[in-house]
């Protein structure tokens, strides 16, 4: 139990250091943009594929239930609400946790056990700023963008299914879809995706930065980064939905 609370305290200190370092110069612009590319562009293909399939399959599964009530015309707005309020941010975060979170944990972990982080320290460079701040900023800013993108691609998948069955036009599908979407939905999508992104970056960096016990430690850092961030993301989802629903 004591170890658990000490760990929580370490995470708190790590997080506090991030918020201190993020505003202090010098800024590692080049590395931040490099990480934007690594997290964003390199995840586009998997986000596109999963987003499209999620939209397509979810529409297909929902169709039969709505058809019983003759309400298949609700499919566009149902899909828009499902995707933008829940599926897009959650699925994007889970994919990025698996793909990027594990990568950050393993990369920083192997840098720790091969003394590369210490090498940065002794060469008078701040490794926290270069490695941690850049990666956490990248996940925090890129996950919301990817979530919006996934929402759009998911709606395209939904449109393909609706078009095949009802021959609804592209324009009327999207008019229907966005009819019930409010500013609060879009704001929540961006906010919670940013929180998920921050969680993924912090969890990956924390586990990698303090990895020990050689190659075993690197594997553990990557694994813990994914498992813990997914667990925390689900808890955050529950809390945010509960909180936001009070304002609807």
């Amino acid at each position: 139990m004591k170890v658990f609370f000490l760990r929580i305290y370490d995470i708190y200190q790590f997080s506090l250091r991030f918020w201190k370092e993020v505003f202090l110069p010098p800024y590692e612009y080049k590395e931040v943009f490099n990480q934007f590319y690594e997290v964003g562009i390199r995840s586009l293909s998997i986000i596109t594929l999963t987003g499209f399939i999620t939209g397509l399959v979810f529409t297909k599964q929902s169709r039969s239930s709505l058809a019983e009530f003759g309400a298949t015309s609700w499919l566009p707005s149902l899909m828009a609400i499902a995707l933008l309020r829940a599926l897009a941010p959650l699925v994007t975060a889970l994919i990025i946790a698996g793909k990027v979170g594990s990568n950050i944990g393993a990369e920083l972990g192997s840098m720790r056990v091969t003394e590369q982080i210490e090498a940065m320290e002794v060469s008078s460079t701040n490794p926290f700023k270069f490695l941690v701040v850049s990666r956490v900023l990248a996940t925090t800013f890129i996950v919301p963008l990817l979530a919006i993108y996934m929402g759009f691609v998911g709606l395209l998948g939904a449109f393909v299914n609706v078009y095949n069955n009802e021959q609804t036009s592209f324009t009327s599908f999207f008019q229907e879809a966005f009819m019930r979407i409010t500013f609060l939905d879009l704001f929540t999508l961006v906010l919670k995706s940013a929180i998920y992104g921050y969680t993924i970056g912090m969890t990956g960096c924390f586990n990698g930065y303090y990895a020990d016990q050689g190659t075993v430690g690197v594997g553990r850092a990557a694994n813990t980064a994914v498992v813990v961030s997914m667990f925390v993301i689900f808890i955050e989802e529950m809390l945010i939905v509960t909180l936001i629903n009070n304002y609807r």
Binding site: E107, S110, M111, T114, E115, Q116, E118, A119, E121, V122, S123, S124, N126
Partner: peptide, 20 residues
């Protein structure tokens, strides 16, 4: 400490070159 470290060179046992 950072300023002082710029006057100290540290050659690590495993070289510690940045892999990437």
């Amino acid at each position: 400490l950072q300023e002082l470290r710029s006057k100290i060179g540290f050659s690590f046992q495993g070289s510690a070159l940045y892999d990437g």
